[in-house]
Design a protein around this nucleic acid. Structure first.
Lengths: 229, 229
DNA sequence: TATATTTGCGTCATTATTACGCAAATAAGA
DNA sequence: TCTTATTTGCGTAATAATGACGCAAATATA
């Protein structure tokens, strides 16, 4: 018993990236058309009738920014009656990550005059209710990285331990004791220590590269292991 | 730039209730119309153009079951292209709780021939992809009650400590040491012990009633306290 | 009055957490 | 070359949290 609706369905994607110098950044596009023409916005667009929500997200990201995502999960659905001045639109927001190796070159197309990475410490004014969406996404990232190993998605596949430490301390915004942090993470048993030194950046004793071992994590998780940082 | 869509937007509500003898139950309705006529389903329906998603949930619950909810939060949005055989429908699922005192009398109206509470240990076959939604909701309840005080929403405002213990041990499906559990919960500092004995049920030493102190919880949480059970 | 049941309060061993100390390996400057 | 600043690696010790369990007190029921 369908009543005649006139509600549009969109998807939006908050995509996180990380680099040691910039910190955590978010991918935004500059809107080409009204409303909010010229304002920065989260990439996204309307869902086509035959495609899944996830497919729509990846398609829009490709079209608007050329970026291919490494991790994707649903964030929240925003549906207030007046969030889009044109007509009623509900937007299913997704949460994505690209790893540091693919902090890719951006290419703008269809809906965007421009696409750019913005450090979360220095965000522009955003179109629609996108600021609210973004705030929720950052909150999700902060929380989730403490109880699931998604922090690794932000780094290169192989990383120096100090990068992991830096990621956690800056994002959680609290000092982390280097020695205790390492003991804790190593004891989880989900990292592999490689036989290769990390590329040097200035002074200091050289350290090995590490990589996340997803198989080990899945196995341990299955045995009731509890990831927490 | 809206492309012409033909997608319907619905909301569904997984509503949990609890009673010591039944365990945790979920509110379902028997469908009155095709598709899945006569099958059990999660209450819900199409969103009206001018109402918020939350309003739609409460309206549908009222219409279909007469139940008024004590706790409500968004669960997940289900949007696979063929989840509704009629036409493309995306459904924003919500997660609700009614407390034990209001394990209310049910009244069926509009869309439902009948509405009933089903213990989660004994669920019927469900319409659409509702089984999947329900599974996710139960998972959410299980997880969330370990790191946020939503378990109390399932009990009466004033409860015996053994009820809380029973709720956690049955829902988490693991034995809970009564003495350690109590020590842990009391130490959180979010319960008020009343000067009144709990109503007797059979033998055993009588114990006081307790109630959740939301103000204390908010205060402590603000000071960085970490709820975990 | 005896027995089963439930609550209340405790102890003790084990494990996790936190705060540090300090030496080794490097780059850069004197 | 020698010194200094920087970063890594490996540790110890005090404190806090967890988990396993003992046992008495207060009740209903047989």
């Amino acid at each position: 018993m369908k009543t005649t609706q006139n509600i549009s369905v969109a998807v939006d994607a908050i995509v996180f990236g990380y680099q040691k110098d910039q910190g955590v950044s978010i991918l935004l596009i500059k809107r080409k058309y009204a409303p909010f023409k010229g304002k920065w916005a989260i990439p996204g667009g309307f869902v086509k009738e035959k495609e899944s929500l996830e497919f729509a997200v990846e398609r829009e990201l490709k079209e608007e920014t050329g970026v291919k995502i490494d991790y994707l999960e649903q964030l929240y659905t925003f549906g207030k009656p007046n969030r889009d001045p044109r007509n009623r639109t509900i937007s299913v927001a997704y949460f994505g990550i690209v790893n540091a190796g693919k902090f890719q070159k951006l290419q703008a197309n269809t809906d965007a005059v421009d696409a750019e990475w913005f450090p979360i410490k220095n965000l522009p004014i955003l179109a629609f209710d996108h600021r609210q969406i973004l705030t929720m996404a950052i909150e999700r990232l902060r929380n989730k990285m403490t109880y699931e190993p998604i922090g690794f998605e932000l780094l290169n596949q192989r990383f120096a331990f100090s990068e992991l430490e830096d990621l956690y301390s800056t994002l959680l915004d609290r000092p982390v004791d280097r020695r205790n942090f390492k003991k804790k993470v190593i004891k989880l048993g989900i990292l592999e220590e490689l036989d290769e030194k990390a590329p040097r950046t200035g002074a200091g004793r050289p350290g090995n590269l590490f990589q996340f071992n997803k198989n080990a994590y899945d196995r341990l998780k299955n045995d009731g292991m509890h990831f927490e940082i």
